[in-house]
Amino acid sequence: MLKSHFVIELLKLLAAGMLLISFAMLSTRRIQRLITLYMWQGAILFLSTALVAYDAGLTELYFSAALTLLLKVIALPFILNWLVRRLGAQRENERLAHIPATMLAGLLLVILAFGLAQPISVLAATIMRHTIGIALAVILLSFLTMIMRRKAIAQVIGFLAMENGLFFAAASATYGMPMVIELGIALDLLVAVFILGIFFFQIREQFDSLDLHHLESLKEE
């Protein structure tokens, strides 16, 4: 009982850290910092999954934690960093309009997510049920990050962070997804980053920049 109580406190702490990182992602202007934040988010995800696996004694979850560590903490940030370097976009900063307003919108999203999660977390029986609201909030905040960004790489990182939130939600509501699905998602993510990487090069070749508002007009004048 004591062990479990301590684990719950620790998990809540990690969940809070996850939320914190989501807000940091929302407010940062630099691409490289965004990638670093994504890496930290993956690390927190790894720690929390491993903790749940330890507490519930589920071997499957250990595998999925290891997968998280390999993919989201090591492989994807490495690939993204490599892409940014190849694209020469290290110092390309985003022109974010009005960060305080975005932050307030994010705050409203958090309230909404907590409100939505309240009935679900009453039903859930897992030890992480307190964190369902935070997982939902992370998903919504990543959405907001994607909406507020113009640059392609930042949008992709927002997408990846959203997947982190989904993974966290799955772990907190139902002790993770079946192994087959998790493997499939992991592979999908890897492939998606590769394909999007190819897109980056194509977009830059066409428009000389990674700014996606060039794609909004249908034809050239």
């Binding site: 914190l20 807000f23 960060i99 932050m103 994010g106 705050l107 958090v110």
Partner: peptide, 9 residues
């Protein structure tokens, strides 16, 4: 505003 936000969070 960020400080305020953290406190409200």
């Amino acid at each position: 505003a960020l400080a305020f936000l953290f406190a409200v969070l």
